[in-house]
């Protein structure tokens, strides 16, 4: 066990835990955007920045990926930390002013209007969707494209992906709701709400509802299972992320059919 001090509170954790997990144990909240429990830490958003008191100089590190050390002294709400976090949120707010997750963060930190030129984007480039597609689903249908200010998440050559299995994991993990599932896909997911893990082929209507010729053991089922284990929920619930407008449209559409 390793003992360290976070905001002058003593805590003992196992070797190899991150600062974020250690402060979670004390009940100290550190804001994050690119962190997800089902995925290895990445350190892209830098929102979880904390200050480590050193002998000569204090260091600023990302709490989500920095490992604990014996006798370490950490500050999670020092002036320097708050200043840096405010700056990051201000940049994010300038990038995507309409996103609720960012707005909430900005409100918490008392930022009303960013000083910078505003863009109207959805994606904050945290890389969660790319990582979940690569590491959890093991598909790699989407990836980063270009670099610098042209960086975006896209499929190769902006074509409809032939490897995507429509699991909806990318949409589920997205903190801003930039990735939406298409309505047809949601329809299939919605029919299955309440029923747990099911074969993807039966979702698509390729095999009859309760019979699977592969005994539910093909790789697509395994992908679903892995997503379920890692994200602690089924990608079906990605449907909840869809904007309410679209869901309402969908419901009115259903009503029309019933009439």
């Amino acid at each position: 066990m390793i003992t360290l001090f976070i905001d002058n509170q003593k805590v003992a954790v196992k070797e190899g835990t991150t600062l974020l997990k250690a402060s979670e144990k004390l009940g100290i909240e550190i804001p994050t955007l690119c962190y997800h429990e089902g995925l290895p830490p990445y350190g892209a958003c830098r929102l979880c920045v904390v200050e480590i008191i050193g002998e000569k100089k204090n260091r600023m590190v990302a709490a989500c990926s920095f490992l604990v050390d014996e006798g370490m002294k950490v500050l999670t709400i020092s002036d320097r930390v708050l200043k840096r976090r405010r700056m990051i949120v201000e940049f994010l707010l300038a990038r995507c002013p309409d996103i609720k997750a960012i707005r909430d963060l900005a409100d918490k930190m008392g930022i009303k209007k960013p000083r910078f030129k505003t863009k109207n984007l959805d994606c904050i480039l945290c890389g969660l969707c790319v990582r979940v597609c690569n590491e959890v689903a093991g598909i790699g249908a989407i990836g980063f494209v270009n670099r610098g200010k042209k960086l975006k998440v896209d499929t190769p050559f902006h074509l409809a992906s032939d490897v995507c299995i429509g699991c909806g994991a990318c949409s589920f993990v997205c903190p801003t709701g930039a990735i939406e599932m298409e309505l047809d896909a949601v329809k299939r997911f919605r029919e299955l709400l309440g029923i747990e893990h099911k074969c993807r082929y039966s979702l698509m209507g390729l095999v009859s509802y309760k019979v699977c010729s592969n005994n539910y053991e093909c790789w697509r089922c395994k992908v679903d299972q892995r997503i379920r284990d890692s994200l602690a929920t089924h990608p079906i619930f990605a449907a909840k992320k869809i904007k309410t407008e679209k869901v309402n449209q969908y419901f009115s559409f259903l009503k029309k059919i019933q009439e």
């Binding site: 597609c133 690569n134 598909i139 790699g140 990836g143 980063f144 270009n146 670099r147 190769p156 490897v163």
Partner: peptide
């Protein structure tokens, strides 16, 4: 993944 190759080629 194709997306990784494309990422490098555009980077």
């Amino acid at each position: 993944p194709f997306s990784l190759v494309y990422h490098l080629a555009t980077f």
